[in-house]
Write a protein that binds this DNA or RNA. Structure first.
Lengths: 154, 154
DNA sequence: GGTCATGATGAATGAATATGCCGAGTAAAG
DNA sequence: CTTTACTCGGCATATTCATTCATCATGACC
């Protein structure tokens, strides 16, 4: 019925909460209305749920809606870190090698994702059933990469 | 007045929400009560605010309090379905076969998980790079299984 | 002692959010 | 052209959360 689709509206909401200090769903509805999108709070509530937005207390009685990393699925890095979180068991470094232990059977999948990164410092990857070996150009680069991955995994 | 201080109570709350799946403040109050700490929802509300806890939507209408939206997710069936969503592209049925299309390289991983289910109605699974073939005992069972999987993915 | 200020809390209530139910629209199947 | 199945979203309401107001306890001060 409405040309501006649900998807479009939700994208606007995501942008909105990052750009502005939004503390209620009614407020979101107002902003959308100014853009010509008229929906009720009920709809916003459903959107907020699907987008997995969060109402973060400021500690002083104020609140602000924020998106969470858990919601960022379009974002490549976000998605990547999700997948990693799920399947990567362990990270280790030895010389210029990184060893990643994964859930059984997932090594090939993770390795494929890593290959797609097409990083210069990675010479190549080798995947077994639950282990990936990443060969880096240098020890220093291996360390840097390890740290980067660990950050991704928090 | 109360021996168990406000500070102590708040520490308990922080532990609690990380350890258990808590979705309302009333629930928090219950748990505390079992530990002999009797406070009302009003107090919990103030605590939640001061601790800056967050009520994170699971995307399916459920909520869980978390100490930070950035916190790692390690548990829960609800999140397992999330994992599948990331990797399962498509579900299809033909006769007594289910065909699952996955992200490139992930077929083996998903197939392994399915194998571990050890379901009677599954005769066996066959995984390529991005496709899994599940052979069921009967057409009816294939249909039921498909529906079950689809429910998991919502 | 009394008085004042402060902080924690509950009861009641107001504000904000979630949801059951229904109808409209749409697409696929028959 | 029906029927069926789904998705979306409004309305009304239920649920959940925040806040106001009053009370009690504590400590500082005179």
């Amino acid at each position: 019925m409405n040309m501006p689709s649900k998807e479009y509206r939700q994208r606007l909401i995501e942008e909105l909460v990052e750009r502005e200090f939004i503390s209620t769903q009614a407020e979101i509805a107002e902003h959308l209305a100014r853009r010509g999108i008229n929906v009720t709070q009920a709809t916003i509530s459903r959107d907020v749920n699907e987008l997995r937005l969060v109402r973060l207390p400021a500690g002083n009685g104020q609140h602000r809606y924020r998106s969470t990393p858990l919601a960022a699925e379009e974002d490549v890095v976000g998605e990547l870190s999700q997948r990693f979180r799920l399947f990567v068991r362990d990270l280790d470094r030895g010389e210029n090698l990184l060893v990643i232990t994964t859930d059984e059977g997932h090594a090939a999948g993770i390795a494929y994702v890593i290959d797609k990164l097409d990083r210069d410092e990675i010479v190549g990857t080798l995947a077994g059933q639950n282990t990936i070996l990443i060969v880096c150009r240098s020890v220093v680069q291996a360390e840097a990469l390890l740290e980067e991955f660990e950050t991704l995994l928090q």
